[in-house]
């Protein structure tokens, strides 16, 4: 199977994010990492290739810094990369991102496209579903397990509150992958070395612009949310903090 994996670079979970001066976006000067569900999407693709053969291609759309996620994916075992490079890809809505990715791969014939189920930064939870619609393919979301069965796939999809559902899915298809389905691998030293010689196709905004169209959403303002609950803050040396907590547990919460 020939599988495309969409990988987004997002601010590191612990990164102290700051607003830009106009309060419309975050400042770029933080550390970045691979969007966590996308790491699981890549892992699943690599395992499918190990089982069924084929090719794993990774793609990202982002500024210069985003190339790093492709390098990491190649080091983990992806065969080649497609890099949609440009600051124009920052802040796009999901439909525009999906159209850009679809345009970038229109001459390829993938059997499967994986995305993460949601980006940790924008949290739109839409790009994979929209990509399927642009490609005219069926899709399913929040997938935990994939097995090849005949001409198609048998999928395990996560539902709310501990429920699951299996589905039969024809190919080609787009799947959005949930975290936790597999254990993630690390890049090996050999893998990192080999990655340097793997092909990376570079495309710019102008190569996909005609297909993207205009953003349907506008972020008017980004701000620190108001706190709703009256929270009491405790700070200080650990022993003192511990004493205060126990005091609260005993005298206010009455749970001791």
């Amino acid at each position: 199977m020939k599988i495309l994996v969409c990988i987004k670079q997002v601010p590191q979970k612990d990164a102290p994010l700051k607003l830009n001066e106009s309060g419309t976006w975050v400042r770029e000067d933080v550390s970045y990492e691979v969007n966590e569900p996308d790491a699981y999407a890549l892992e699943e693709a690599l395992r499918q290739k190990e089982k069924n053969g084929g090719e794993v291609v990774v793609i990202t759309a982002g500024p210069a810094r985003a190339q790093q996620v492709l390098r990491e994916a190649l080091a983990k075992g992806a065969d080649r990369a497609i890099y949609l490079e440009g600051d124009e890809f920052v802040g796009l809505d999901s439909a525009s991102t999906a159209k850009a990715i679809a345009a970038a791969v229109k001459s390829e014939n993938f059997d499967l496209v994986f995305t993460g189920l949601q980006s940790d930064d924008y949290g739109y939870a839409q790009t994979g579903v929209l990509l399927a619609e642009v490609l005219g393919w069926p899709h399913s979301t929040i997938i935990l397990h994939i097995a090849k069965e005949g001409e198609g796939l048998k999928l395990k999809r996560e539902l709310e509150s501990g429920y699951f559902q299996d589905l039969d899915m024809p190919l080609p298809a787009v799947l959005t992958i949930q975290s936790g389905g597999n254990k993630l691998r690390y890049a090996t030293l050999l893998g990192i070395k080999q990655a340097k010689n793997k092909p990376m196709t570079r495309l710019q905004w102008k190569d996909v612009e005609a297909a993207v169209g205009r953003n349907g959403l506008k972020i008017e303002k980004l701000y620190i949310p108001e706190k709703h609950k009256r929270t009491e803050t405790i700070e200080g040396p650990p022993a003192e903090v511990a004493r205060k907590i126990v005091d609260k547990m005993r005298n206010e919460m009455r749970i001791l």
Partner: peptide, 29 residues
Amino acid sequence: DPEAPIFDVADIAVVGNLLEIVPALTEEL
């Protein structure tokens, strides 16, 4: 992280390193 969203639903926000506070709290209990 004093800005962690969990504090928005907390009655008591303890800002600090859990790796130090948790053992101290266990001792105190």
